[in-house]
Design a protein around this nucleic acid. Structure first.
Ligand code: FES
Ligand code: FES
Lengths: 154, 154
DNA sequence: AGAATAAAAGACTTTTTTATCTTTTTTTTA
DNA sequence: TAAAAAAAAGATAAAAAAGTCTTTTATTCT
């Protein structure tokens, strides 16, 4: 559905949101190891997100990536649009050059409903809200949660 | 969302469903020209669909592709699963190795709802039902419809 | 100031996806 | 039965995505 870049990005953002703070930044190495994604690839992608200030970063010793309070109240839509381009939520499901109710493909009407529900998933909740769930008991078995646990053990 | 292969495949299937019959088969050349997609690429993809009998084909003069009555009452889900693999409708939105409510990522609950609405789009209606809409007046402006019109003009 | 740390930037490689080309097989019809 | 038509199959090429490596720049700490 999303590209790998985008999936890695979303996971990294959620991981950072739940594990890093301004006074406890995380380096690419740590994030890459925790999420088990290729390190230099993740680096590039985090830099991309930092450049447009979806996440925050600092160079030098004790530098790394984190989410500021401002970053945390944004939503995941921008992460997706930054990494997979702005058309993900507006292009035709059959790949036709335009998508509008004035110019619909035979799946348009239904496709719009599904697309909006995806948009809703990515837009309705703040990053903070989504990230908070990672630690919640219902999510204890989630691979993302497990990674974080593992990470916190010595 | 879907791969290009898949989009081309869906468009081709809908085009064939609305324009071809057993006694009026269409060659790859015609379909490719009408949909403006690369011909040899479409050929391969149609062959893939024909191999698993989602569409029908015949060799030789007057041969080509078409949808049998049986093909027409099937749905588009199988087209997608044939071309993009069987996991499209069941894999985690964040790309985690498993996706289940026993093992949810923080987006799982909402993601499932959206995924089901996509599945619904592709599964609820028969190919015939979807294809019939191509000719309907509401869809007169759709690129797919326009292509068909163009195609029918001398 | 100098060394160390870590992001930023950019060049490069590999893999996958998308696209093209060629040959073979089957079927029809003259 | 020979020629033509069209799918089937498979080899090859180009483009895009994914992944790696190297150098530069900024920051902190000693
Ligand atoms: S035109 Fe195809 S989804 Fe809107
Ligand atoms: S576990 Fe992520 S969508 Fe189900």
């Amino acid at each position: 559905m999303f590209s790998k870049t985008c999936k890695y990005g979303l996971r990294a953002v959620l991981y950072l949101a739940s594990q890093a703070q301004e006074d406890h930044k995380l380096g690419v190495k740590q994030v890459a190891a925790a999420l088990e994604v290729p390190q230099p690839f993740l680096a590039k992608l985090l830099q991309q997100l930092a450049r447009v200030q979806i996440i925050s970063s600092a160079k030098g010793p004790n530098g790394g990536f984190y989410l500021s309070d401002k970053n945390l109240v944004a939503n995941l839509r921008q992460v997706v649009e930054c990494l997979d381009g702005p058309d993900v939520f507006s292009s035709c499901i059959l790949g036709l050059p335009s998508c509008s109710s004035a110019n619909p493909c035979p799946l348009h009407q239904q496709a719009v409903a599904y697309r909006n529900s995806l948009l809703d998933v990515m837009e309705r909740q703040t990053i903070r809200e989504v990230a908070q769930r990672i630690g919640a008991p219902e999510y204890a078995q989630s691979p993302l949660s497990l990674l974080i646990k593992k990470d916190n053990q010595p």
